[in-house]
Structures are given as structure tokens and as C-alpha cells.
């Protein structure tokens, strides 16, 4: 049992970060706090993929001089595929964060507040 827990410790940390991000998105009222929760959630997924790609006793995915011509042993290098996918995911995540911050600025210009419940109150009062 203890060995089982230790052999998968990265998965426990990623599960905890995912729960933290989900709580931030659901439980917090402030819109910027919701966005911070979304960032944490995204980082948890990236951590999951990166930890899938790692191998015990392997090196970084850059070939050394003697392995250049097709003689590389795949056990000596990390799996490069999750790294590539997460490279894309990080940049796209920052782009979505930027769009979300733009929407937050527009919401603030219209309602003069960032709290979700106050925005709902104003909308209910004005009959929208």
C-alpha cells in the first residue's frame, strides 16, 4: 500500500492541483480569482502529461554526438511527444488567458465591479 502511494506521488500532486483549480473556478466569487483557478487547473494537466513522458534513468531529449545516425536507444532519452503537445498547450493557454482578461476588463467597464454576485444583482435590478 505504502509502495503504491510512493510509486505514483506525481499523480497525487496533480490530482490535488486539479481539485484546487476546480474549487477556485466554482467557489470563488471574484472573476480574476476564477481565472487564477483556471490557470492552476491547466498547469495540473500539463504536469500530468510531462510526468507521463518521463523515464527512470533517461536523459533530456537532445541526442548526444555518438547517437546521431540512427543508433539511439529510446530508453536513454525522455519521451519527446508529451513535451511537444504541452509546448502547444502552454502557448494556447496563455492566449485564452489574454482573451479572458479582455472580457473581464469589458465586464468591469460596464458594471464597475468584479464580484459575480454583485453583477447578478445589478442585472436583476435593471431587469435584463
Amino acid at each position: 500500500m505504502f509502495e503504491y502511494i510512493v510509486s505514483k506521488y506525481n499523480y497525487w500532486v496533480y490530482i490535488f492541483l486539479m481539485m484546487l483549480g476546480l474549487y477556485g473556478m466554482i467557489g470563488k466569487k471574484n472573476l480574476v480569482k476564477k481565472l487564477i483557478g483556471m490557470n492552476i487547473f491547466q498547469v495540473a494537466i500539463i504536469l500530468f502529461y510531462i510526468s507521463i513522458g518521463s523515464k527512470v534513468g533517461a536523459s533530456i531529449p537532445i541526442l548526444t554526438a555518438e547517437d546521431l545516425h540512427g543508433s539511439a536507444n529510446p530508453l536513454h532519452y525522455m519521451n519527446p511527444l508529451p513535451h511537444v503537445l504541452m509546448l502547444t498547450a502552454i502557448v494556447v493557454g496563455i492566449a485564452t488567458t489574454g482573451v479572458a482578461l479582455g472580457i473581464i476588463i469589458m465586464v468591469y467597464n460596464r458594471y464597475k465591479t468584479l464580484a459575480e454576485d454583485e453583477i447578478l444583482e445589478i442585472r436583476k435590478k435593471s431587469g435584463v
Binding site: 518521463s54 525522455m78 502552454i90 496563455i94 482578461l101
Partner: peptide, 30 residues
């Protein structure tokens, strides 16, 4: 964990640009 390319992308895009965007948005709001 051996993912150096992801690490420097995260350092300049995730930590750098992301923080700058957040600070700009907080500066424009409350």
C-alpha cells in the same frame, strides 16, 4: 523531469507574459 523545452517556454510565456497580462488587467480594474 527532463522537459527543458517546456521549462523555458513556461518560464518566458507562462510566468513572464502571463504575469504581465494579469497585472495590466488588475491595473485597469479593481
Amino acid at each position: 523531469m527532463g522537459a527543458v523545452d517546456v521549462a523555458f517556454t513556461e518560464a518566458c510565456v507562462g510566468a513572464g507574459v502571463g504575469t504581465v497580462l494579469f497585472i495590466a488587467a488588475v491595473h485597469k480594474t479593481k
